[in-house]
Design a binder for these strands. Sequence first.
DNA 1: AAAAAAC
Length: 586
Amino acid sequence: MPTPSDYNGKVPAAAGAARTSYVPPHLRNRPLSAEAASAPVARSGGYSAGPRNDRIGGSSSYIGGGGGGWNNRSNGWDRGREREANPFQDDLETEQEFGSRDNTGINFDAYEDIPVETSGKDVPSPVSTFAEIDLGEALNLNIKRCKYVKPTPVQRYAIPISLAGRDLMACAQTGSGKTAAFCFPIISGIMKSSQSAPSPPSFSRMAYPFALILSPTRELSVQIHEEARKFAYQTGVRVVVAYGVIDCSGQLRDLEKGVDILVATPGRLVDLLERARVSLQMVKYLALDEADRMLDMGFEPQIRRIVQQMDMPPAGVRQTMLFSATFPKEIQCLAADFLSNYVFLAVGRVGSSTDLIVQRVEYVLETDKRSHLMDLLHAQIANGNQGKQALTLVFVETKKGADALEHWLCINGFPATSIHGDRSQQEREYALRSFKSGKTPILVATDVAARGLDIPHVAHVVNFDLPNDIDDYVHRIGRTGRAGKTGLATAFFNDNNSSLARPLSDLMLEANQEVPAWISRFAARSSYGKNRRGGGGGRFGGRDFRRDTSYNRGGTDYYSVGAGHSSNGYNASSGYGPATVTSAWD
DNA sequence: AAAAAAC
């Protein structure tokens, strides 16, 4: 179990000076009377010069009024003025609306025999209860409020690993509790270390988050923010989200009020860094959600810029956690640049009784897709599968295609809406709400909705247009069958998708799905996807590329230990041997 | 070739 000194080992020497006046996060939310008493002595740490105290003492209005701006992480004084909104309020309302809603709880029976694999040096042991982990009283209370009874597989492994201060690359299906897996250690770590945290190093309107969480879409950032706010409720740890167009929702104001955990999309964060509204020099935790997407061709330059070319502490000083349901080898290779002596964690995806998604592939010509979709929707209605308890998510390839299909569905009497990158943020958020509430139980979407979004009650995912990449398919169908519930995924396949035939049929075979015989005709034609997973079998969304025999970084820190050091090092006595490979399956 | 993400 980590001690506070584990968390503070890298804190500058000046830290001690701040101790007496600093108000740690867990005390920031005390009632106003208690706060007021300590206000005049708001932290005057080593960095803090006179002006800060003058400002605090002499001004009755805080942030926003004067524009001078100061990072007020340092005082709990103004925090008491605003009551922290109860982030659990929405849950109560939704719960009433849906009657006995049980999706806050995970169906643990379905996860009982899930395969788990770890690799890396000295992998910390997993836990089986939250009680075994010292997360702190406030966080434990929030876990109860979230109705989490016991940790999910990814949480059982990832939380001890990250509490031990280790970097992590984790493959786990979204909906299996990933967000909590990286939020709990971050919140807990910030609470513990804050007792001796250094002051922000300058006097400006810049924000100095301790933790940075990046995700590839605005909606996913919103979702992570909402979840993180629940976990951080009344801990004093402040969570702020930044995404999309300039400050339509008071994001800049929130930043100025101080931030401990910043959740952001990459473009927005680059913008904030350029405007010098955010500094990354205090970042102790970096988490990338949907990390393989964050490091693909479209995002990689931005991520490199943020992580390597700004003022963020380097790998090894900060703690880095990468999460995704899929982790292609090439991306793992790239990701190694951002990690230091990391643990690789893979939580089973398919191939066991945990597979809760029934997958179907149907041969549908381009011209027949619409009428075929209508048949499916009619059949669903005939089965009594409709309304807000049985939402249908339809994926198409293009934004134009999404608009067209939405329009066509609507004029044919189907209550549909759509979400894609050409719609305004307002429209996007409205569409998502309208879908979630069941007002429009059909949502037509581009890949913007493929990853990470947690939408309860999605009973059916239709791949109206199949993606070109099997990993995208995996993420898309993962919008159903969540939290232990079952789901259906139907794909419309035709000659345009022949490149996907082999990986798709492989994936379905792994998942014990019925694969139509005709698909092998296409599979034979294409060589795409061969060995994409490093021949590592299909139980996982990925396999540690460091274990691949073709990978040899000889002389790097990964395999520096041990006699009999082989070309891959995996079976050498370097800590990668079978003894450290744990599996809940065996 | 398309999608996502800042102004």
